[in-house]
Design a protein around this nucleic acid. Sequence first.
DNA 1: CGCTTAATGATAATGGTTTTCATTATCAAG
DNA 2: CTTGATAATGAAAACCATTATCATTAAGCG
Lengths: 158, 158
Amino acid sequence: MPRGDGTGPPGWRGRFRGCGHRFTIPRQAIIETLEKTSAHLSAEDIYLKVHTQYPNIGLTTVYRTLEVLAQMRLISKFDFGDGRARYELTKNSKKEHHHHLVCTNCNRIIDYTDFIDEEVELLNKTEKALSKKFNFEISNHLIQFYGLCEKCKKGESV
Amino acid sequence: MPRGDGTGPPGWRGRFRGCGHRFTIPRQAIIETLEKTSAHLSAEDIYLKVHTQYPNIGLTTVYRTLEVLAQMRLISKFDFGDGRARYELTKNSKKEHHHHLVCTNCNRIIDYTDFIDEEVELLNKTEKALSKKFNFEISNHLIQFYGLCEKCKKGESV
DNA sequence: CGCTTAATGATAATGGTTTTCATTATCAAG
DNA sequence: CTTGATAATGAAAACCATTATCATTAAGCG
Ligand SMILES: [Mn+2]
Ligand SMILES: [Mn+2]
Ligand SMILES: [Zn+2]
Ligand SMILES: [Zn+2]
């Protein structure tokens, strides 16, 4: 059963305490913002959203919280080529591990999980082979496809 | 037969002219620097190397040339997480298309092409499926594995 | 309720990249 | 080989996302 005390069902407070971190209002607010969206927010995006409800939470704190969350592996940090880092909860209610399509024209990001089945298999195989060959301990991977989204593909032919 | 006039065997001048660009000394020097290395150089890396032979070529020009080269698809631009963009010739004598292992501890980059055969197959399949499903025109992809290199794996257990 | 100290926030600093603008040099035309 | 239009260059300043500083606040433990 959910707590209803603002610490959220999955026990954010517990996770923070478990890593020796304090669970503060700003951290709670930032996580709630990330939970509410399915977008890929930048630090400033998050700051602005949080700001409407907690006008005294600073951008610096957003950056610091994101760093802690990333280090705890609770969020993923991405570079989609628009000059700022973007973040999303690693396990959102709606999202599990997925990869991205990035529109090089309008910077739209599309999540996909649909065709991952065979990918997962090949990824495991590849990771195993690479680990052995280079004696490299793989802990994570990044897969992104770049191109033109539906909208931009149309606009291109004008 | 190679020209021997400094424009290089693959006809760099021709490629530039073909895109309506002029072929200048700085551009030539930057390309030669990229041809000579198998590393993943930053703009400043390139600037410093070029600087030893042409001390009056500026960092700004390096950035601008890299932008042109990237737009012409002759170089690839990467973000390995160390806060600066890194570049490499798309088709080097030694390298064709390849993917990267990135050490999250010492930032070492390992190129690999070895296990790509099955990857290529799956990638084509995936790209086709994604294109259809999202009506997205895929023109490029990025695949990187993160973890600890041989050296850093050892150091970790100390 | 206090105490310890991690966390915060306003501000300044950092550093990679981009802009500006006056000057130079490429290269097509004559 | 000139010449001229203009793309390219370089020094300097501007930009802007991110980080460091430091005095202040508050989380969590006893
Ligand atoms: Mn996503
Ligand atoms: Mn490479
Ligand atoms: Zn688009
Ligand atoms: Zn390493």
